[in-house]
Design a protein around this nucleic acid. Structure first.
Lengths: 332, 332
DNA sequence: TTGAAAGCGATACCAT
DNA sequence: ATGGTATCGCTTTCAA
């Protein structure tokens, strides 16, 4: 049988309120009483029941993280950063994986109505007005990562600037025909990166040729298909890929088509995921783990200090860094 | 203010027990009453409070997953398999990341005494007798993945057999001096893979030379160091690495030392992690995701059917498959 | 400082 | 079928 706080109280010869006070480090307990109670607690290795405690305190000591496909490197790294912070805070992390629209709605209703978590970090998912309304009505603290809403603190990458840096590097290497394998336009990241791509070109007096831009899913197969489509109609000397995975897909295609990299085709990717250094892929590195840890600490602040006024939404921007390797041809 | 089941009952003009019955799909409610109650529920978008429900039902509807460093591909894939199953079951997943001994103890005490989860999946961690005792006293259903105890259902890879297959392949390719870059011997996987390595050799009449075996951490840097050490004292024509990450580390070294792969050195890894196909690394593929999903369904069975007698511990073994690519030289 | 009692928001049993 | 009530295990307020 599980012991309750009542059993401990009885055995220690005190009221159960006192045991609660001891366990919650209340200063209003005399040293003698505290010692007596602690002795019984230690003897039985007693711990408060998490659920009962949550109910009484009206908080679960738990944080939810909502991710689409957490197998993607970017999300994992962010998650790692979040975990790191949470570990120190003694809060548990509930992982919600969203794979489709229905699941997404279900999860948002769940966390707002059933209240299984005290706060939530949303990675990458685009929130609708309705989501925001739900969250705000529920009074649930929220932090967004790789997603943005003025209502909530948002941690984002400067995608436009990152793309601009990447493309500028290619231009400085002498390339004029620079293709772009972008993500699908329904992702904000894609739109922003396209913008950066265009800016770099126009800033250097190169006309934007829409023939040189293709969109695909942010994955290796997507990159492969995009490269197939792109290179069948134009012949860029360089390609900026909106993700490393797509870049790898492009390299898959290049290998198959016998196109030498970087001699015939220079490539710069985005993300700096695992192992691309081995492959020699130049890329824009994002501080994924740091974004996660910042997100978590912001959320923890909000939980510690539930006063809304003192936690105005912030917009925290991380700028990707260019990592030069062999795929862009600037190293010999 | 959050509505409670009481408010709904009052508004619907019924007792709160009836609302509970409706919400829990009890058959003992007349259609008329049910309709009336549902109307009020829908009107307010009412949902049961998760924590209160957990307390009353004495179960949290939550499953814990304990992982050491979940950033490792193997763990992520397993986690993905677990998630997939859990999604369908409507249970939440709490992720516990164990980075050190202290954390490990803390987490085991936590889950057994505070009861924040109904069941638990432990990945890779070695359980001591004390851990098992804690878990059993708490009556907590447990499934182990990549770890083994006779007390609990365990899902494991046949590491010995996997290693044997890998090394046999190298032998059949004509190699006689086959090195092994193994993991540290404190991991059971390392011990088992070493055993398989030896068996393959002796079965083919090749004498085991301990000079050819080195141990390192299961990571890229470990592989690099191991290769450095190994190749400075012997000259194997092939190396079997106990993980792809180590294999990559070996390739890092080979590249730097100007050793051609596979001409001068054939390599076979273990795991088949992301992107190693691009690199052309031959490897032993593990069904990581499947191991996770099997683990989760076994646990769900135990939760559904809490009768211990009907859930005897099982030992489920997955055998790794050889994936031949260019690094071992069998493809031209 | 301490004990007693009233919640927290459900479930489940017992009458009816 | 339905309502009322005890209970789950804790926190917190209120007296003392």
């Amino acid at each position: 049988m599980r012991l309750t706080i009542r059993d401990i109280a009885k055995e220690a010869g005190v009221g159960l309120g006192t045991v609660s006070r001891v366990l919650n480090d209340s200063p209003h307990v005399s040293p003698a009483t505290r010692a007596k109670v602690l002795e019984v607690i230690d003897k039985h290795n007693y711990r408060l029941h998490a659920v009962a405690r949550s109910l009484a305190k009206r908080c679960t000591n738990t944080v939810g993280v909502i991710v689409p496909q957490f197998t993607k490197r970017f999300f994992i790294e962010v998650l790692k950063g979040i975990q790191g912070q949470l570990d120190n805070s003694g809060r548990d992390l509930i992982l919600y994986n969203v794979q489709n629209r229905v699941q997404k709605e279900e999860i948002f209703e769940r966390i707002t109505y059933e209240k299984p978590v005290d706060g939530i970090i949303v990675i990458n998912l685009r929130l609708t007005d309705r989501h925001c309304q739900l969250l705000q009505e529920a009074g649930l603290p929220v932090v967004l990562v790789d997603s943005e809403r003025h209502e909530f603190t948002s941690i984002v990458s400067d995608n436009a600037r990152g793309a601009e840096i990447a493309v500028t590097h290619l231009i400085e290497l002498g390339h004029k025909e620079i293709g772009m394998v972008n993500g699908l336009m329904r992702y904000h990241a894609s739109r922003q990166r396209l913008q950066g791509y265009k800016k770099a070109l126009t800033d250097h007096g190169i006309e934007v040729n829409h023939e040189l831009v293709v969109n695909s899913e942010f994955c290796r197969a997507g990159g492969y298909e995009a490269a197939t489509a792109l290179l069948s109609r134009v012949t860029p000397t360089a390609i900026f890929a909106a993700s490393d995975e797509q870049a790898i897909g492009i390299m898959d295609y290049a290998k198959k088509a016998g196109i030498q990299i970087p001699q015939k085709l220079a490539i710069v990717g985005f993300d700096d995921i695992d192992l691309v250094d081995f492959i020699g892929l130049s890329t824009m590195r994002q501080s994924m783990e740091e974004m996660g840890s910042v997100a978590a600490s912001k959320l923890l602040e909000m939980l510690t200090n539930p006063n809304d006024e003192e936690n105005p939404p912030e917009r925290i921007v991380f700028c990707p860094r260019l990592i030069v390797r062999s795929s862009c041809g600037s190293q010999v």
